[in-house]
Structures are given as structure tokens and as C-alpha cells.
Write a protein that binds this DNA or RNA. Structure first.
Lengths: 204, 204
DNA sequence: GCAAGGTATGAATCGTGATTCACTTCTTGA
DNA sequence: TCAAGAAGTGAATCACGATTCATACCTTGC
């Protein structure tokens, strides 16, 4: 037993691992999953292909981690926006708007996280991601249903539907400008959680 | 010029082509796109691998056609349900319910059409498919906005959001039983197209 | 019947990109 | 300084399924 890595060596190793994750993220952010070959990741991190495999058992595991970190970041941003002291409706609106604006800023990343075809193993992370988004909305919805500020509804279904609606609108190419699109989307989401008025229900 | 296929021969050829398409569809319906290798399609159709390429220039083109036919079928079903003589809201509800029930019946097919990772060329058909769904909803929504039975809104955004919401709810695994799920989903969609009531908007 | 040309076959080829591994280089503790 | 073992290297290998193509078989019109 003539060798046992010191803290310093382990730190260096961790730094390499980190560079690999960052390089992978950068590739996804700029060109999506398709462009992100292991060779490209290695080049971006300044290491040899084989080195990637000294830190991750497979490409799928590497990108699962990248997805995990990136999507957690997004969910956190939305959750933070929704932590504001406001009514349930207003908080939902804030969440939707944050979700939308961030996605429109980094379209490629949003597409990669929300919709791009990926390995099954990575797809699993995506489901976790979408569920996490839904959960953020669901907890506010539950609160609103309980305190009566929202009409009775299944908060889980509503939350999942919201995530789907937002994702689809953001993923689909649109003509209208960003401001209008976000405004329409927020209005859609607010309508969908609040009571439909009898006036319109019977007006037709 | 000693050979020019007769009608009979062309019919036989068309029949082979048809068998290939059916086999491809059957594979997708049962195991999704992943399971549907060209070899498996050929086997299912009772022909050799190479024969597939005498009828389609590539796997992507074959499956693009399969997607086209299958999804048109779904869209038609929804459009037909919405042709009933009823109010805009009721028709939307019918459309959503039809969409949902059919998808829950053939979950694998629904997943393949709505969400499964596929070739870019096939993905294009999927976009067409989703747009077609959205358009079916959009035309009713436009009508409702014009005649005042629905509040002012961007019908295209609403329609796309509806498709996203429905797709996500159906794609995501759920605990509740089918009846309850569909009911919740229909309610969500109806709320999302009708006016939010002032009562709840200001109640919090 | 037979030449021309179409159609079917399926084993062999190809492309792509992940993964491996024999080898080199670096670290450590004695 | 040295042996043991860890980390890094990158060309070679592998896996896998789409695609090709030399060959055999049918159809047609003369």
C-alpha cells in the first residue's frame, strides 16, 4: 500500500470531473444533446476521451447528472420567484412567467431539458424534472384549494397540465413577440386554475 | 421495352407496400418506435429487409408515413367528436374527452405519437400532428371568441397550451382511475378557456 | 421461348459514436 | 530513489441497426 491519494490530489481529480460536467453542460446549452458526443465533451474539458470514463461509468450517467443539475437550477429559480409574499394566483403567475422567460432566454437549453430526444436513462431525469416543476405548482395550488381562494380541483392534475401547457407553448415555434406570448400564457394559466364564470358558461 | 407492369402487378406491389406499413404500425402500437427496426418490420410484413427499401427510400420516410396516417386518424376522431351541434365549451369538452379516452386506450401508441424520441424526420410529422390537433381546437376557440361565448384570448396560444396540457397529463403516469383523470382534465381545459371569476380572483 | 427489365432476397457492408485497454505519466509512502 | 498503484491517454475495438447490392426470380411483350 504505497499510494493513497492526498486531499490535494483528490481535489485535482474533482476539478477534472467538474470540468467535464461543465463542458457537457456547455455543449448542451449551445447545441443540444445531439452535438454532445463524448469526444466533444472530452475536447471541451481538455482531457482525453478515456478520461471521461474514469469519472463516469457511461455517457448516459454523465448527462443524467448534467440534466439533474441544470434542471434543478431552473426549478429553483421558479420556486424562488413563487416564494414572494402574494396571493396564490399571483404566485402562480410569477412562477409561470419566470419559467417562460428563462426558457425563452435559453431556448436551446429549454428545448434540451423539455423536449429533445435523449437516452432512456437521461429521459428518466427529465421526468423527475417535470415532476419537480409540477410539484412546485402543486403545493401552491393545494394551499389555494384549502383556503378557498381557488375552486375545488385535483391540484396534481392541474399542476401537471400547467407544466405541459407551458412546455408546449414554449417549445412550439411562435410568431408573436415574447411579451405578448408570455402574457397570453400567463392568462391561460390563471384562467385554468380559477373558477369559470357562470356568465360565460351559459352564454353560448 | 419488353416489360411494363400491368394493373394486376401494380396492385400486388401496392399490397406489399401496404403490408409493410401495417407491420410498422403494429410494431409501433405494441412496442413503440424503439422496437421497430427495419428487420422487424420486414419480418412482420413477411418480406426481406431489402424489400422495404424497394418501397421506401429510408426508415425515416416509412415511419413518417406511418405517423402521418396514425395521427391523422386520431385527429379525425377528435374533429368528428367536436362536430356535434353544441356550444363551443361543450364541443371543446367533447374533443378533450375523445382525445383523452383514445390515448388512454392505446397508451403505447399515444406515447409514440406524442412523446417518444424519434428520428428528426419523424419528429417533423409529430409537429404536424400536434399542430393539427391545436388547429382543431383553435377553430372552435376562434368561433367562441368571435361570438362572445368565450372571453378575449389568443386562440392559437390557448389551443397549443391545451394540446400540451392534455399530452402531458396523458403521458405522465397517474395514480387516479381513468374516469377521475379524464374528468379532472376536462374541467381543467374548460376553466382554461372561460373567464376567471372575480369572486375567486380577489378572495385570497 | 426468350430478352428486357422489374421485383425480391438477405448476407455483407457501412457509418457512427460509445466504450475499452495497453500503455504512459504522475503520486505517494517507505 | 523506488515500487505500487492511481490517473490520463487516444487509437483501436465494438455494437448496432440502417442501408446496399450481387444474385435469383418474375412478368411482360414480342
Amino acid at each position: 500500500m504505497a499510494y493513497r491519494p492526498t486531499a490535494r490530489t483528490e481535489a485535482r481529480r474533482a476539478e477534472v470531473r467538474d470540468r467535464i460536467v461543465r463542458a457537457a453542460f456547455e455543449l448542451i446549452r449551445r447545441g443540444g444533446y445531439r452535438e454532445a458526443s463524448v469526444a466533444a465533451v472530452a475536447a471541451g474539458a481538455g482531457v482525453a476521451t478515456g478520461t471521461v470514463y474514469r469519472h463516469f461509468p457511461s455517457k448516459a450517467e454523465l448527462f443524467a447528472e448534467v440534466f439533474r443539475v441544470a434542471s434543478q437550477h431552473e426549478v429553483d429559480a421558479v420556486a424562488e420567484a413563487m416564494a414572494a409574499p402574494a396571493s396564490v394566483s399571483d404566485r402562480i403567475a410569477l412562477g409561470v412567467e419566470t419559467f417562460a422567460r428563462r426558457a425563452l432566454r435559453g431556448r436551446r437549453l429549454a428545448w434540451a431539458l423539455l423536449a429533445e430526444p435523449v437516452d432512456p436513462a437521461v429521459e428518466e431525469e427529465r421526468l423527475v424534472f417535470r415532476r419537480a416543476y409540477a410539484e412546485v405548482f402543486a403545493s401552491s395550488l393545494r394551499e389555494g384549494v384549502l383556503d378557498g381562494s381557488l375552486p375545488p380541483q385535483d391540484p396534481d392534475v392541474t399542476a401537471v397540465a400547467l407544466v405541459g401547457a407551458i412546455g408546449e407553448v414554449l417549445t412550439q415555434p411562435h410568431s408573436s413577440d415574447e411579451q405578448a406570448l408570455v402574457a397570453s400564457l400567463v392568462r391561460f394559466c390563471l384562467r385554468s386554475i380559477t373558477e369559470e364564470s357562470d356568465v360565460h358558461r351559459h352564454a353560448a
